[in-house]
Amino acid sequence: MNRRSQKRRTPAGRHVYLLFAAPGMTLFLAFWLLPMLRLAGVGASGPSGAAAYLAVLTNRHYFTSLVSTLLLSAAVTLATLMISSLVGLFLQRNRFAGKALLLAMLTFPLAFPGVVVGFMVIMLAGRQGLIGAVTNWLFGDAWVFAYSLGGLFLGYLYFSIPRVILTVMAAAEKLDPALEEAARSLGADSLRVFVDIVLPALAPALVSSGAICFATSVGAFGTAFTLATNIDVLPMAIYNEFTSYANFSMAAALSIVLGAMTWLVLALARSWSGNAAGAAA
């Protein structure tokens, strides 16, 4: 017994767990990290060299794509957070017949791939879509906006709402109702309670799920691809650079920039919400 535990403290024994990680980490290093380094190298191999990494700021065309991508994602994130908080809080706080079914339906699209989400938008706002049919009947003018930034907005909203509802519900479950009651007994109206008590308590969850929503919208490709290949967002710009113009180095540089951006947003949000949660505890 003694000998065994001594043996486990030797360096070889301590590192034995690394063996367990070997297959997974080998896969990861060989097929993700090395290719990414190669991609970064290809990005700097174009006619303009490493300056290609600044093209997203200096080139007018890419810059417009970047700005519209960021604005669209910010709008989607804001709208998703508002809608999902309202619905999530409502579901967490009320019991009524059919609630489980409603929740199941609200989270059903969780695993839809971007292409299918795109098709759902076509069903709603496309040429033969529901919105077009209804507006045609009401105003004699069919609204068709699926094949533009408006359709993409609707698609990302469709994609993000179920995720954020789940996060909000999980966070709201941990809220202490005594705090709200105390605030109310001190005379705060429901708006004050919401702004001063509920919102700060939900903030870490909202920030982290908002960041995921933002990052997915910035990097998503399937929905835009289904709706129209000429929608001017950065992932489509990369795709067109690669397939239509065979400009590999520019496609590589742009995707490194895009990847760095989404990673940074997620990392910032995580460190912020992690700190906030730590401070609250």
């Binding site: 993700w32 290719p35 990414m36 991609l39 910035v218 490709f221 590589a252 895009l258 990847g259």
Partner: peptide, 19 residues
Amino acid sequence: LMMPVAVPGLATALALIMA
């Protein structure tokens, strides 16, 4: 390990193709 999820799939795919 989370990187391939955090980074857009387009970037991962291009990296694999180039390598």
